[in-house]
Design a protein around this nucleic acid. Sequence first.
RNA 1: GCCGACGUAGCUCAGUGGUUAGAGCGCUCGCCUGUCGAGCGAGAUGUCGAGGGUUCGAUUCCCUUCGCCGGCGCCA
Length: 597
Amino acid sequence: MIRTHQAGQLRAEHAGQTVTLAGWVARRRDHGGVTFIDLRDGSGVVQIVFRSTDEAHALRNEFCVKVTGTVGKRPEGNENPELPTGEIEVTVNELEVLSESAPLPFPIDEHVTVGEEARLRHRYLDLRRDGQAKAIRLRSRASAIAREVLGARDFLEIETPTLTRSTPEGARDFLVPVRLQPGSWYALPQSPQLFKQLLMVAGMERYYQIARCYRDEDFRADRQPEFTQLDIEMSFVTQDDIIELGEAIVKALWGELASFDISAPFPRMTYHEAMDRYGSDKPDLRYDIELRDLTSFFAGTEFRVFQAEYVGAVVMQGGAGQSRKELDGWQDWAKARGARGLAYVVLDAETGEARGPVAKNLSEAHLKGLADAAGAQPGDAVFFAAGSKRSSQELLGAARIEIAKRSNLIDESQWSFLWVVDAPMFEPATDDKGKQIGWTAVHHPFTSPNEEWVDRFESAPDEALAYAYDIVCNGNEIGGGSIRIHRGDVQKRVFSLLGISETEAKDKFGFLLDAFQYGPPPHGGIAFGWDRVCMLLAGTDSIRDVIAFPKSGGGFDPLTGAPTPITADQRKEAGVDARPKAPVTSIQPFSSPGATH
RNA sequence: GCCGACGUAGCUCAGUGGUUAGAGCGCUCGCCUGUCGAGCGAGAUGUCGAGGGUUCGAUUCCCUUCGCCGGCGCCA
């Protein structure tokens, strides 16, 4: 090493020692006769002092330098309690400029906010900033912790292909042309789902992988086209085993990285309970607003809007104090979400009298009983949604979150974890006009019905429940999984209900079905959204903060400029324009000798 | 695909239908021996995202377009 110590680790005990440091000029305070420089390396910052003025004068921000000097206690009164190294400083005898830095496109300074585009274009500079560097370091530690927990439990870390064929998740695939077979394409995996199930058939019993996944869908703050899962699968387990493992991982992560001791087992809630009480399959339990089902309360109402399959309400405490403009704002908010509006009633703070546009349409009895039925007090506002149960609950659930935000009810210092279990197996598949044309799998078609439904899910597909579970943290789904179907007869019945013919099943995942002919063990697993987990641990709002080189909107990488057009030669060689011999209308059959499902 | 916001100096942002478009930070130069987001003085830096239109005159108003951010759709 060209240095003897790390800058951030020098302490009073080093006083008197001669040290050689290497790092970057973080800040220069030039007093003429004496110059102070904050020298930064990966470990932190230390103040170095130049008495000979000329060489220090030439230094600029982010020059990479090597210095040799003597560690000394700072003169009394000049200590800096803000810095871990604040008791000491290094007086320089020898300076070597390892490399110079051009003027910076933006300051490497925690106090200055810089636009994301500029930061990503010069991400290597952005990552010199303390907060950004910490997020990346934290992620490394999170991955190490996961490996420690899983390694101690005899899990095998196994890599799976990234050049593969399309797997049955619902997103668009990224495709890769194949030079050796013009006209044929690989797909990048949306997850290692099928491979990890094959590894169970292979007797690996306990698999995990920190796996890159690819989905060609639109962006969000918490979504990237390539993202990472901590992917896990186990044989001979029940749902409770997976949940216990998930809790162990989360406990280890939050214990070390957030200094938060979570008491396991985490609370569990069924999917239906979550929807009924919170209008979300990933409720944030840091605030205790709940939805009220008013369907029976309003049965027989004259008000057309409330003559619906479901009428529900959510209360905004103190919401009656909102201005007309604020109440109108809720209408815009609801319309932006595709709802027609958000009906509301405000309860007079003095008299408790119900007022607002909706109140006129309600009977005397309904107005009188409303506060009780909705769980509201004088001075509150009550928001309503009416229509189909699912969409109304979702609207109220979104309103619940928005109320918490606007009313400042979210305690950011808290962590709320829970499992949402008993997810439905199926939901109606609809055409463009919203007419039901069949059923589609909520999770994926290999998810096992639970014990109660395994023999009769066909009798009421909309009610059938799965051994599927999501782990939720502060209103974010951070992981999810299921027990898989390992019985051929059950799998056949599920395909049949989903309207997937034997031929089609063979086309899409014949290789898995083949494998399942050879004694597949009962198995199940879970996948954590690793970017999201790290984002929460890092306390940031965007997964971009925990990805070293994230993409911006539209899949553009501001640093490399990818994606780029390709040359005519590249096109030709890649076989992008190869014409298939016959038009391909569906995925090509998977051909395998002996596939006799 | 849809909705909303934004785009002015290297960075963060202010501003205006009318003379030469500003601030802070950064940058360059100078001064300064105890600073720590050092201080003081001087200086340089602009396709006001792009194109078109209205106007005597547009960075400002209108239209289109591009970029970016957030949300909806989409993403099991």
